[in-house]
Simulated assay, not measured.
Amino acid sequence: MRIPLPLLDVVLTLVTAFAIGAVVMWISGYDPIMSYRSMLFTPLLDYTYFFSALAFSAPIVLTGLTFAVGLRAGLFNIGAEGQVYMGALGAVVAAYITKSSLALPLALFIGLTLACVWSLVPALLKIWRGVNEVITTIMMNWIAYWVVIMAVSTVFTNPLQPEESIKTPEPARLTPLVAGTDLTAAVPLSYIIALFVYIFVKYSVWGYRISISGQNPIVAKSYGIEPMRSIMLSFLIGALTAGVAGVMQVVAKPPSYSLMRNLANVYGLGFDGITAAMLGRGHPIGVAIAALFLGVLQEGARHMQIEAGTPFEFVRIIQGVIILLLAIQMLKKT
């Protein structure tokens, strides 16, 4: 049985990344065998760690979809980070407006609206002026970061706990499905969204138009497909998934159910999504599997610190090497 080439590339990338990580650990004076055993096997053998890994993977699934749908349209959309911030801000605004159960649907409405509005700037600049989306999405990410930092530090700060925002009211919270874990309804929701996105890009007319426009805009025009519409739609779909991730990190993140002043519970999720999308080869189901793998890594890293004494930052080194190797592969194919 022959292994598909894309899967073989991913496996070789992971093996190389872990090998480089092991060398760095050894040079730094840490035991790579004990570290990897703690990192990779503990989350799979202990249900508490595994459910926490699932919870960590949920927002990465959603931000990974943002990048993956962009790739389908021929875009390098790295704006999920800023759109996650705006989604989280929407949840905080909803908690400020009402203390009832209406805060949950209101959080989704405001959060998704803000995320979509935030994506319109790079989308319109791309469509009207041909501005590279990498530049504009990076710009919008940083603007979103400081806007949300300012909002959480002033208007929406929690007077009882100044290090965080106003808390989501109890009736609107998504509480853990399993006691003692972070597993909430946000986890199955994220994977269901990934399934819907897969069905959309695989079987819908607009999914076909996005794919054709991304592969060859000239051919798309000859078939009567307008590439600019596909670009706009891909940006909006990506904003919706990233916005949901931001909202869920506030309304479904025990025990605080708030947004930290330094954005600790949302920071970096957009960039983790890029890793998941590249590992998953831009396929929505592949993104979900890759996000779960990254969740296991992140949760296992916490146990690695306790059992092996190895710093958490080594996981970031491994992720960075994975992105670098996958980017090199993409460059070779272009």
Rank of each mutant, 00 (worst) to 15 (best):
Asp272Pro: 01
Asn262Thr: 13
Gln305Ser: 13
Ser256Asn: 10
Tyr257Met: 11
Phe312Thr: 04
Gly282His: 06
Gly295Glu: 02
Phe293Met: 06
Gly273Arg: 05
His303Asp: 12
Arg261Gln: 15
Asn262Asp: 14
Phe312Gln: 09
Leu263Ala: 06
Met304Pro: 09
Leu263Cys: 05
Leu279Ser: 07
His283Thr: 02
Met304Lys: 05
Gln298Ala: 13
Ile306Pro: 06
Gly270Trp: 00
Ala308Glu: 05
Thr275Cys: 07
Ile274Asp: 01
Ala252Met: 06
Asn265Trp: 03
Pro311Phe: 14
Ile306Val: 15
Phe312Ser: 01
Arg302Pro: 01
Glu299Arg: 12
Val296Arg: 03
Phe293Ile: 09
Ile289Thr: 11
Ser258Gln: 12
Ala276Pro: 01
Met278Tyr: 06
Ala301Cys: 11
Glu313Ser: 15
Asn262His: 13
Val315Arg: 10
Phe312Asn: 04
Arg281Tyr: 13
Pro255Phe: 05
Ala308Cys: 11
Leu292Asp: 09
Glu313Trp: 15
Ala277Asp: 03
Gly270Tyr: 00
Ala290Val: 01
Ile289Asn: 07
Ile306Phe: 14
Gly300Ala: 01
Ala277Met: 01
Tyr267Phe: 14
Val315Pro: 09
Val296Thr: 05
Ile274Gln: 08
Pro254Arg: 08
His303Ser: 12
Asp272Cys: 03
Val287Ala: 06
Pro255Tyr: 03
Tyr267Ile: 12
Leu259Arg: 08
Pro284Gln: 02
Met260Tyr: 15
Ala301Pro: 09
Tyr257Lys: 12
Pro254Asp: 02
Glu313Arg: 14
Met304Trp: 09
Gly270Ile: 04
Gly282Val: 07
Leu263Phe: 07
Pro254Trp: 00
Ala308Ile: 09
Lys253Val: 11
Met278Gly: 12
Gly273Pro: 03
